[in-house]
Nucleic acid binder design. Structure first.
Length: 260
DNA sequence: AATGACTACAACCGCCTTGAT
DNA sequence: AATCAAGGCGGTTGTAGTCAT
């Protein structure tokens, strides 16, 4: 006897969310706040299970999300936190405002793991990869040992490497955090725009209640108009919190269930 | 230009935790 | 204390996009 499914799966839609579904979910959450995810799909008119709605919202639609690759600072922070916390992605994510556990987990698996292995560090233990398994070490040593003492015993050198790696975690540049999309080169924008292509929601298509959206021209100089998930898009959510001319309400405070 | 391999990430699945009764 | 429902979490999968040949 297994666990009961989280919801009646019959007739429920799976797979990528459409722009129409996103609109419904966003409109619903902005109107009603987050509460009782199981009831959300029914009330919002979605053929999804509540869990799927929650995931879509928390990982993709939430207004306070940053988009784009993690900055060097964020990446180092993730490494540092992972060394302390292990695969507790939600705990790690709680230290990186605007990042989701899913995003960090994905970034870890696709980027950071490889990076650490290249450096000769076991991504799981955060210790130098052991000699027996260490076909990568020559690489590592050539890059790090040459300036120090090539004749050092292996464990001393490894300790140095570990220290270096850890130092890189703490020697962070605060300015890299201020604009995470910048430091990650052009691939960052292409990366996020590629995901934008899979969800081609146009910003101006959305129907949000109780406040006015800026027009695409107001928000960007991009001649093509802004796509919903353009890198700069989420910074535009800032006006939900405070808008200088005062025409837009401080929306967050009015969200019933503490949306953010 | 076609196609196969690789990469990145959104989404799903199933287990765990928590709170209410 | 036991049970159940709901939300949360981490691992895994599916697929679209990109690159190399």
């Amino acid at each position: 006897m297994g666990r009961q499914p989280c919801c009646e799966k019959v007739g429920l839609k799976k797979g990528p969310w459409t722009s129409e579904e996103d609109k419904k979910l966003i409109n619903f959450i902005l109107t009603n706040g987050q509460c009782c995810w199981r009831a959300v799909p029914k009330l919002a008119g979605l053929l999804r299970c509540g869990k799927s709605c929650r995931l879509r919202w928390t990982n993709y639609l939430r207004p306070d999300l940053k988009r784009g690759l993690l900055s060097d600072f964020e990446e180092n922070l993730v490494i540092d936190l992972h060394a302390q916390l292990g695969n507790r992605w939600s705990k790690i994510a709680s230290h990186l405002p605007g990042r989701t556990d899913n995003e960090i987990k994905n970034h870890w698996n696709t980027h950071i793991k490889k990076k650490l292995r290249k450096m000769g560090i076991d991504p799981q233990t955060h210790k130098p990869i052991s000699i027996s398994t260490d076909s990568l070490q020559p690489n590592l040593h050539s890059s790090l040992e040459t300036e120090t003492s090539p004749n050092l015993p292996i464990n001393v050198t490894e300790t140095k490497e570990l220290e270096q790696a850890m130092t890189s975690v703490t020697n962070v540049k605060p300015e890299t955090l201020s604009n995470p999309c910048v430091s990650s080169s052009s691939s960052s924008s292409s990366s996020s725009s590629s995901s934008s292509n899979s969800n081609p929601i146009r910003f101006e298509d959305l129907e949000f209640p109780d406040f006015e959206w800026l027009s695409s021209n107001d928000m960007t100089n991009n001649d093509n108009g802004i796509e919903f998930w353009e890198d700069d898009y989420f910074s535009s959510w800032d006006f939900l919190v405070g808008h200088e001319d005062g025409e837009v309400p401080i929306f967050q405070e009015s969200w019933p269930c503490g949306l953010i």
